[in-house]
Amino acid sequence: MSLVGKVVIVTGASSGIGAATAEAFAKAGAKVVLIGRNEANLKTTEAACKAANSKAELLLITADVTVDAERIINTTIDRFGQLDVLVNNAGIFEGGNILDIDVDQFDRLMNTNMRSIFLLTKLAAPHLIKTKGNIVNVSSASGLRANHAMSTYCCSKAAVDQFTRCIALDLASQNVRVNSVNPGIIVTDIFRYSGPSPAELDEFYKRLKKMHPLGRVGEPKEVALAIVFLASDSTSFITGANLPIDGGRHVVSSLIVD
C-alpha cells in the first residue's frame, strides 16, 4: 500500500472509526498521530496500534479539533518533520426536528463537523504539498440524502462532501488528492453518547439493519480499510470522490428495505 514511513494524522482517534483507522495505518507501517479529547481512550487506541505493529511510531495529542488545529499541525511537524496524510474523522451527532432544535445545535455541529476540517486542511495543505500527500474526510451517508429530524447533522456532512470536491480542485495542480468516505450506520459510540439505554441502542441497530440492502450495519474496520485504501498510492488517480460505505443504502429510494 506504499504507506511505510508516511506520517498520518487521524482525528477522533479515541474510539470508533478513528481508532480503527489509526490501527489500520499503524499495521501498514505508517507513523500515526492520534488526536482525541479523551487521553485514556487515546492510550487504548495506542495499545491497539502497538498490538497491530510493535514497531509503529505513534504520537498522542490530547486536543479538541475545534480550538487546537494549529497545535495539532505544529506538534506533528515538530516531531516528524513532515505530513503525508490528514484524516479528518472527528465529528459529533445530534438530532431533532427544526421546530424543536435551536441555533446552538447548528453551531455546535457545523463547528465540529465542518469548521474544524476547514482549519486543519488550511494549516496542513502547505505540508501536504511538499510531500504530494492527500486528505481523507470522514463524511456520512447522511451527507448524500435527507433524513427526518437530522437537518443539522445532514447539512454538516453535506458541507464536508462539497468541501472535499472543492478542495480537490484547489489542490489538484499541487498533486494533493482530497477524497471522502460516506459511512452508513456503523457500530460506534457516536449514538451511545446521544443518550439511549443499552436496550434502546440494540433495538436501534436492529431496526436500522433494514435501511441497508446488505441487511446489516457496518463495523469501524470496514470504513478504516477504505480510508487506508484512498490514502495509498493505489488510488493515485482518484480525487474529489465521495465513497459510500453503507451496505448499499445510497442506492435505494426508501429508508426501509423489505
Rank of each mutant, 00 (worst) to 15 (best):
N97V: 04
I98E: 07
I98S: 05
L99R: 09
L99N: 13
Q105S: 00
D107W: 09
M110R: 08
N111T: 14
T112D: 10
N113R: 09
R115Y: 01
R115N: 13
R115S: 02
F118I: 15
F118E: 10
F118Y: 15
L119D: 12
L120E: 00
L120C: 08
L120T: 05
L120G: 01
T121H: 04
T121P: 02
K122P: 08
K122H: 09
K122C: 13
L123E: 04
L123V: 06
L123R: 04
L123D: 02
A125I: 07
P126F: 10
H127L: 08
I129Y: 11
I129Q: 15
K130D: 06
K132F: 11
G133F: 00
G133K: 04
G133D: 04
I135L: 07
V138S: 00
S139Y: 03
S139E: 02
S139N: 07
S142A: 00
R145W: 02
N147A: 12
N147T: 14
H148V: 13
S151R: 02
T152C: 07
Y153R: 00
Y153S: 03
C154Q: 02
C154R: 03
C154V: 00
C154S: 06
C155P: 01
C155Y: 02
S156P: 02
A158D: 00
A159G: 12
V160H: 13
V160T: 07
D161E: 06
D161A: 00
Q162M: 15
F163T: 08
T164Y: 04
R165S: 07
R165W: 14
I167T: 11
I167N: 08
A168C: 01
L169K: 13
D170N: 09
L171W: 12
L171F: 14
S173Q: 09
Q174S: 14
Q174Y: 14
Q174W: 10
Q174V: 01
N175Y: 12
V176C: 05
R177P: 09
V178G: 08
S180M: 05
S180P: 10
S180N: 12
S180L: 06
V181C: 09
N182H: 09
P183F: 02
P183K: 01
P183N: 06
G184M: 14
I185C: 12
I186Y: 11
I186G: 07
V187I: 13
T188P: 04
T188I: 06
D189N: 14
F191G: 10
F191V: 13
F191H: 10
R192F: 08
R192M: 05
G195M: 10
P196Y: 12
P196I: 06
P198N: 14
E200V: 09
D202L: 04
D202N: 11
D202C: 03
E203F: 12
E203N: 14
F204S: 13
Y205L: 12
R207D: 15
R207G: 15
L208H: 15
L208K: 12
